[in-house]
Design a protein around this nucleic acid. Sequence first.
DNA 1: TCAATAATCATCCGATCGGTTGATTGTGTC
DNA 2: GACACAATCAACCGATCGGATGATTATTGA
Lengths: 213, 213
Amino acid sequence: MIGYPVRVPETSRNPRRAPVEKQRDPERTKRKILDAAKIEFGAKGYAAARVSDIAGRAGVNKQLISYYFGGKEGLFQELAGQWHETGGEISTVDQPLPEVARQFVMTTLHDRDWGRMMMWANMSGEDDPGGDPEARFMQVQVEQIRTRQQQGEIPDDLDPAYLLLALVAAASASLALPRAVRNITGEDAASPDFITKYADQLALLVGHLTKKP
Amino acid sequence: MIGYPVRVPETSRNPRRAPVEKQRDPERTKRKILDAAKIEFGAKGYAAARVSDIAGRAGVNKQLISYYFGGKEGLFQELAGQWHETGGEISTVDQPLPEVARQFVMTTLHDRDWGRMMMWANMSGEDDPGGDPEARFMQVQVEQIRTRQQQGEIPDDLDPAYLLLALVAAASASLALPRAVRNITGEDAASPDFITKYADQLALLVGHLTKKP
DNA sequence: TCAATAATCATCCGATCGGTTGATTGTGTC
DNA sequence: GACACAATCAACCGATCGGATGATTATTGA
């Protein structure tokens, strides 16, 4: 899941070894901490997440969070910097806009915890560490929409930036508004069924923008 | 702002009175606490908000929060129950859908702190206290959209509930995604200029859904 | 084989949080 | 004017949080 460099401990040298559970493997430990943190931060947000809960979920001592990441804040930064994982994978060029919209929604299904983590951070409004990739990604998308507009794919009276913003916000519904999802559709915001149908619907909606009389 | 019953203290009886600042007025104190809490909860969310900050902002001793509202949790519940203020004012019937979309966005300009507070709460996914009015409001909106659909105002292939969800999520952008707003449009999410233009743009967008060849 | 170092853990610590206690002051009443 | 009660506050308290300290165990290289 995370492209972390994994150093496999040499098991051939010493025949007397601790059970696999107890074998020391800093990379595996780091990964366990990162995975647990992503879940906790995603579920509760930074302020409400507890380092002891993260350590507990990872099955390690909580001091290791300071040892490896320099504390709660450092751990969060480490996760927040991993933009390539999710954002980079979206290939939006050469696809019709409705498909791009669908992809935006489907992204919320894959790395859900990370997505929710970013949602909390985005809402807090603080400047994003490693925000460069995010901002650059958005700018690229704006330009692509502008190009589509010049090609007549979407109406002329829409501002590309504002259209993208509306798309991103709508696509984030399952992450940002789980309660509204239930209140409006009756579905669970995390369910693949809901997300898939929502992606379809948003693609349809965007499709109606492009169809000319 | 808040429809709280205000008891004006009798000033005529006793000529020797404390300065207006120090005059005791529980309703005014409650209101000051509620206003301050709305700002703090809206800015940081429940978990990150501090009762001492709320009291400090209200200019009162923090004990009064327990005294009047039964603590942090009670204070939050009190605010969360005030749905009529914002939600009830939106008159959506007899307006074309683009205007409804515009109104949804413009709502985020009026009671901004309360809106952000609800956004935090909505994101946490917990069942909403006084969630009944919210859920009922949403259901009414879904039915209105369904009616519009039957009248041919919007395409037949869109599910009214999912369309409403997309609209609500898109309209919440300035509350839920202030960072994305800056990254994408370069504007400040709280600025009336931005919100007004965004409302216009979303109305335009929805308008393109309805126009038939 | 044995130090040296890295990885992990049990325990403690200062800061801060939300809440409580008890005193104090203003206010209306008799 | 004094009593009773409501409103307000200063100070304190237990719980918990994030982080630090120092010991312990595993691993590696000499």
